[in-house]
């Protein structure tokens, strides 16, 4: 009896872990990539009226789907609130969390996650009504601030006010929708989130012209996708998908010219597009994985401009997110 019991127990334990340790195989067998996404942030993750998802984070998921399956439509998006996102990834509900999530040491070590890199360098800011005549976040002493729960934003806010010896009244909401709505009805003097988020949320308040974003950026918010800890192969696949998109931009490979580029003599481009070497196979993918990504999703720069840059209503300047060669921080290790 005891022996049978321990055999069952072992089966339960090992049965559960083998699934989490081979995400790439699980995803391939399933035929679909489950992607934890922001369901309400324009520019990063938002379904349109036809239910088609768009955004910078959404593009990363589509790129991973393209790399794994050769088809970017095999990504399924699961909208998650800030406070539920880590549990969803930990429990295996999603294979990949691309939901404008700030990379911090405690999240990397305590939550059982691994951040694969940074797909958007951000910082936290404030939005206020112009009628308050506030020019700087340092004038916000005593103010009520609406904030979304379960974010680094919530902690930075407390830190910033304490460091500047200002009093603060926080009103915390479970989702950004509720927090923004409360701010819009006048419950709070200020609304705070990542600066990129402020630009997109400003478009959603009743009268955007009555609100301004204050100049202060009070924190570093490197936003990046995360995968479960303990599956190095899957970690590599997602990480190199992002790097491939950045490398493609640096090498001038775009969705428009990727066909012609395959004939290029440039060895870097040949390695990137799989006409030389077997770098795709080394990752457990096909030879033409980058071609599939670039053809459907485009390179990092294209994705950026389409979702948050000049091609979008947000019109965010690339700033820190320019390539390293153009004065920004986006830098990818070479494929070779």
């Amino acid at each position: 009896m005891k022996r049978i019991a321990s055999v069952i127990a072992l089966a339960v334990i090992f049965g559960a872990t083998s699934a989490s340790a081979q995400t790439l195989k699980t995803v391939k067998d399933r035929g679909i990539l489950n992607c934890g996404s922001n369901g309400s942030l324009a520019g990063f993750g938002l379904p349109d009226a036809q239910g088609k998802w768009a955004g910078l984070d959404v593009d990363l998921c589509r790129a991973v789907a393209a790399a794994v399956f050769g088809d970017d439509k095999k990504a399924k998006f699961i909208p998650l609130s800030a406070k539920d996102r880590f549990t969803a990834l930990q429990s295996g509900e999603v294979d990949l969390l691309a939901r404008n999530t700030t990379w911090t040491s405690s999240r990397d070590t305590q939550l059982g996650l691994n951040f694969i890199g940074v797909n958007y360098y951000d910082g936290q800011g404030f939005m206020v009504r112009t009628s308050l005549k506030v020019k700087s976040a340092l004038e916000l002493g005593d103010a009520s601030v609406c904030v979304q729960q379960g974010t680094t934003t919530e902690l930075n806010l407390a830190d910033y006010f304490r460091a500047n010896k200002m009093k603060l009244k926080t009103v915390t909401f479970a989702t950004s929708n509720e927090a923004l709505k409360a701010y819009d009805t006048g419950r709070c003097d200020a609304y705070t989130t990542d600066a990129s988020g402020l630009y997109s949320e400003r478009l959603r308040v009743a009268n955007a012209a009555e609100h301004i974003v204050l100049p202060e950026i009070i924190s570093k918010e490197p936003l990046g996708p995360a995968v479960r800890h303990g599956d190095d192969q899957w970690f590599d696949v997602v990480k190199w998908t992002l790097y491939a998109m950045i490398n493609a931009e640096e090498l001038g490979v775009t969705s428009a010219n990727v066909g012609d580029m395959a004939k290029s003599d440039n060895p870097d481009i040949k390695r990137l597009l799989g006409t030389e070497g077997n770098y795709g196979e080394q990752l457990g993918l096909s030879k033409d994985w980058v071609v599939n990504i670039i053809k459907t999703v485009g390179n990092y720069g294209e994705s950026f401009e389409r979702n948050v840059g000049t091609g979008s209503p947000l019109k965010i300047d690339r700033g820190l997110n320019k390539l390293w060669s153009k004065g920004g921080l986006q830098y990818a290790p070479p494929i070779r």
Partner: peptide, 24 residues
């Protein structure tokens, strides 16, 4: 076992840690 393998912190040590957020 799974928590340990996934490197997710466990136990009640967090109880004494600084919260760092405000409550209205």
């Amino acid at each position: 076992d799974n928590l340990k393998r996934a490197n997710i912190a466990s136990g009640f040590g967090f109880w004494e840690q600084t919260a760092g957020f405000d409550i209205s």
